[in-house]
Amino acid sequence: MIDETKQQAAVDYILGELSSADAAAFEKELGQDEELRQFTKELTDDIASMGLAASPINPRPELFSRIQKTLGLSNRTKITTLSFLPWALAACLAIACLILGLNNLRTRNLVAQLRQRDVLAHLQIASLQAQVDAYARASAIIVWNPQRQQGLLRLSSVTAPEAGHDYQLWIIDPAHKTPVSAGVVTVGKEGVASVEFRPVQPVTSAAGFAVSIEKAGGSSAPEGQIVLAGR
C-alpha cells in the first residue's frame, strides 16, 4: 500500500515539482520499491493522458519539413514516396497482369484461327461419277478429313437398291490391298442420303472413293457392282 506521503511525492515528481535532489532521491526509491515504481508508472500514464483533453489541431504541413531541416534529415517527400512504393508495385503488377491477360487472349484467338485454317487446308473433297447408266443423274459429294479420319457423304437422285441389298461406301487407299469399308449407306424415299462415316481401318491416303451395291448389311470387301466412283 502506497501511503499518502509517497503518493504526493509521486505526483510532485511526475509534474516536475520536486527539486533536483528530491527527484534523485525519489528515483532511487523507485529502483528499490517495485510497488511504488508500478504505481508511479500508472500515475504517469494517467496524468499524461490529461493532454488529450486539449483539442487536437493539425499543425501546418510545412512544419515537419522545418523539423527535418533542423535535424539535418532527408526531405519527407522521399519518405512519403517510399511509403507508397508497395502500392506503386502492386499497381504495376496489376497492369502487367492485364497486359499479359489480353495478350494471352489474343494468342488463343490466333491459335484457334490457325487451327481452323489448318483443318480447312487439309480437307479433301471428292465428287463421285456414275459408273453405270442407271446412276447417270445421281450426285455424290464426299468431304474427307484425314486428320480426324472421318467424312461426310451426301447422295441425291439415287434410287433405293433392290430388297436384300444395301449401298456401301469404300475408300481406296494404296496402303491397303483391298478398299477399306466406310459403312453401309441407307437412302431415303426421296433418293437422298446424308451420312457421316468412319473407315473400319485407318486410312493413310484416300486416293479415291466408291459406292457399290452389296448384300444387306454390307461386305468386308467389294463384291457387288460399283455404281459411283471418283477422287
Binding site: 493532454g51 523539423i67 519518405i79 512519403t80
Partner: peptide, 20 residues
C-alpha cells in the same frame, strides 16, 4: 526516418493541440 515520419503523423495533432 520513416518511423519518425509515421510517429509525427500519428501524434502531431494531439501534441500540437496540447502545445497550443
Amino acid at each position: 526516418q520513416v518511423a519518425f515520419a509515421l510517429f509525427y503523423d500519428r501524434f502531431s495533432p494531439v501534441l500540437y493541440g496540447m502545445a497550443f
